[in-house]
């Protein structure tokens, strides 16, 4: 075990444990969307878990940074807040904020994060650049709306973890989305309807129809 300080609080963590988990285990919340405990390597894609570490120049992502004895971590300096707010607003600006009609509303992690960060869901700072991919309604149990997806990778990881692997990525850049092999309907790619993806989806991109 190593001892480190996060936001002035001395905490203990296993040697090599990532700072993110060390903080969460000790009741210190750091925003994150893509981190999966137990994944072999961190996805490090959402870029929300930035922290400042004394003695280090730039900001680092807490999900990739191993805890080291004596480390002093700050999770909400002005620099951290500014970058995290901007990255989060970028997600919102490309997310159809239509909570009234969303199956996930109430349990949505974007709503929770917005509250935590003190940011309005309908951000006005950036241009609204929403995507217009077709919605996959083919499966009896699962609804796939790639337009709501924030590409956190959790569904893909979970689906593969269960040995199914029905989900993957399609396209590059802004057109990047979750989808199926050959872009076939979800009902035709061996999805068993276990709903594990819907359970881990932070937003309403994958939702259980029941």
């Amino acid at each position: 075990m190593v001892r480190l300080t996060i936001d002035g609080k001395e905490v203990q963590a296993r040697q090599g444990e990532k700072v993110l988990w060390a903080a969460l285990d000790n009741g210190i919340y750091i925003p994150h969307l893509c981190a999966i405990r137990g994944a072999e390597e961190p996805h490090a894609g959402c870029r929300l878990c930035f922290v400042e570490i004394e003695g280090r120049d730039g900001l680092v992502t807490a999900c990739t940074e191993p805890a080291v004895g004596g480390m002093v971590v700050h999770t909400s300096t002005e620099r951290v807040k500014r970058i995290v707010a901007t990255v989060f607003e970028l997600l919102l600006a490309s997310h159809p904020v239509d909570c009234a009609h969303c199956l996930r509303s109430g349990g949505c992690e974007l709503q929770r994060l917005a509250r935590f960060l003190g940011i309005k869901l309908k951000s006005r700072r950036f241009r609204q650049l929403v995507r217009e991919f077709p919605i996959d309604d083919s499966h009896p149990a699962i609804l796939l709306d790639p337009n709501k997806c924030i590409l956190c990778h959790r569904c893909i990881w979970t689906c593969r973890q269960r040995g199914i692997g029905a989900l993957g990525y399609i396209n590059r850049g802004f057109e990047r989305r979750i989808g199926t092999f050959g872009d076939m309907p979800l009902a035709e790619v061996g999805c068993e309807g276990c709903e594990a993806c819907a359970q881990v989806c932070p937003v309403g991109a994958l939702a259980a129809k029941r």
């Binding site: 894609g45 901007t86 241009r127 924030i150 590409l151 590059r172 850049g173």
Partner: peptide
Amino acid sequence: QRESCGKCTPCRLGTKQMLA
């Protein structure tokens, strides 16, 4: 922006906003 792999938020969405 086109060649961004789309994995991380700032590169996927930030460059798109900048381009706009």
